[in-house]
Amino acid sequence: MCTAIKHKKNYFGRNLDLEFELPFTKVVITPRNYKLNLRANNEQITMNHAIIGMAMVVDDYPLYYDAMNEKGLFVAGLNFDGYAKYFDIKNNFINITPFELIPYILGSCSNVKEAKNLLNNVNLINISFNNKLPLSPLHWMMCDEDECIVIESTKNGLSIYDNPLKTLANNPEFPYHLENMNHYANLNPNQRVELYNENIKIISNGTGTTGLPGGLASQDRFVRACYTNSTSKCDDNEEADVTQHFHTLKSVAQTRGTVIGHQSKYEITIYTNCYSSKTLSLYYNTYNNERLTGFTLKDNKNVDSDKLTIYDLVEKQDINWVK
């Protein structure tokens, strides 16, 4: 499944929730001027902007799950099973595959406004990477410092929605999640005032959150992440903001044993990450190692390399033993 948020102005990120391991997941930097071939017509494109993100690399191709470019534009793909639909090649459109969407947009665009203009002419086509890697049914959240949108390719075609809630989960389509939030307009961090009997006292903090969904289904995670993110308070500095971002996503994280997915396997939050457009940094932790690991594109010599830069995930739990 998965949940993504935009925290404040500068921070974006997601939980990647799956019922199977992703042993080939890496942190990958795609440099400026890197060449990629588009499958529809074998046209070669040049990456105008360097990209950092979480990806699997196959034959020198970065298959990004989520990423940010050096201009601070962020995109994440989230599961959209049963709703996503991809099409045959269409004339007079930019025909790209779903696995090409993230590098194509981030390599070409500096902000959401430019991306919207480009997406107006995009057709997502039904061509897999290879016979061992079929297309994943996805929708995408895209953000910069000023805007946040959702991109969905369904039976009705490609739709682009403004996302004022700065949150995305999975099924169903995004307009449902917007409408569903109307049922939770009463949620607030204050205590609920008892109007009926002065002898009935509030016995616990948090009564303003009564009715906040506690489940792990997509619609529940969407509401809980949206509420937690919108009420979030922290100091105004990168360390505090990044820490708060991870706490917010932890509120919808999946613990092994709580959800059984396909093939009777347990679904877990494989990793959580945070991208900062302020410092052009990526922070992440994994299910097995909660310590944050960080990278930055600022003054990074690899952005002018002629090849991908690939880092293994730090998976072993890092415990600070005090003696």
Score class of each variant (00 low, 15 high):
residue 230 S to G: 11
residue 231 T to F: 15
residue 231 T to H: 14
residue 232 S to Q: 14
residue 232 S to C: 15
residue 233 K to G: 08
residue 234 C to A: 13
residue 235 D to G: 06
residue 236 D to P: 03
residue 236 D to L: 10
residue 238 E to Y: 03
residue 238 E to H: 07
residue 238 E to C: 06
residue 238 E to R: 00
residue 238 E to I: 10
residue 240 A to K: 01
residue 240 A to N: 04
residue 241 D to M: 13
residue 243 T to I: 01
residue 246 F to Q: 00
residue 246 F to Y: 04
residue 247 H to K: 14
residue 247 H to C: 12
residue 248 T to K: 06
residue 249 L to R: 03
residue 249 L to G: 03
residue 250 K to F: 09
residue 250 K to A: 14
residue 251 S to M: 14
residue 251 S to W: 06
residue 253 A to T: 12
residue 253 A to L: 10
residue 253 A to F: 09
residue 254 Q to L: 13
residue 254 Q to I: 06
residue 255 T to N: 12
residue 258 T to N: 09
residue 258 T to Y: 04
residue 260 I to F: 07
residue 260 I to N: 07
residue 262 H to F: 06
residue 262 H to K: 13
residue 263 Q to S: 15
residue 264 S to G: 07
residue 266 Y to A: 15
residue 266 Y to K: 08
residue 266 Y to E: 15
residue 268 I to Y: 08
residue 268 I to S: 11
residue 268 I to V: 15
residue 269 T to F: 13
residue 269 T to P: 09
residue 270 I to C: 08
residue 270 I to A: 12
residue 271 Y to S: 01
residue 271 Y to R: 01
residue 271 Y to M: 01
residue 272 T to M: 10
residue 272 T to L: 05
residue 272 T to K: 07
residue 272 T to W: 02
residue 272 T to P: 04
residue 273 N to D: 07
residue 273 N to G: 00
residue 273 N to L: 02
residue 274 C to M: 09
residue 276 S to I: 12
residue 276 S to D: 13
residue 276 S to Q: 09
residue 277 S to K: 05
residue 278 K to N: 15
residue 278 K to D: 15
residue 279 T to H: 08
residue 279 T to L: 11
residue 281 S to C: 08
residue 281 S to K: 06
residue 282 L to G: 09
residue 283 Y to S: 13
residue 283 Y to W: 13
residue 284 Y to N: 02
residue 284 Y to A: 02
residue 286 T to K: 00
residue 286 T to H: 00
residue 286 T to P: 02
residue 288 N to Q: 06
residue 288 N to F: 05
residue 288 N to G: 07
residue 289 N to T: 07
residue 289 N to G: 05
residue 289 N to S: 07
residue 290 E to D: 03
residue 290 E to L: 01
residue 290 E to K: 00
residue 291 R to A: 13
residue 291 R to K: 12
residue 292 L to A: 04
residue 292 L to M: 07
residue 292 L to K: 03
residue 293 T to Y: 10
residue 293 T to V: 13
residue 295 F to Q: 05
residue 295 F to K: 03
residue 296 T to G: 09
residue 297 L to A: 02
residue 297 L to D: 00
residue 297 L to Q: 00
residue 297 L to S: 01
residue 298 K to M: 14
residue 298 K to T: 13
residue 299 D to H: 08
residue 300 N to G: 12
residue 301 K to A: 15
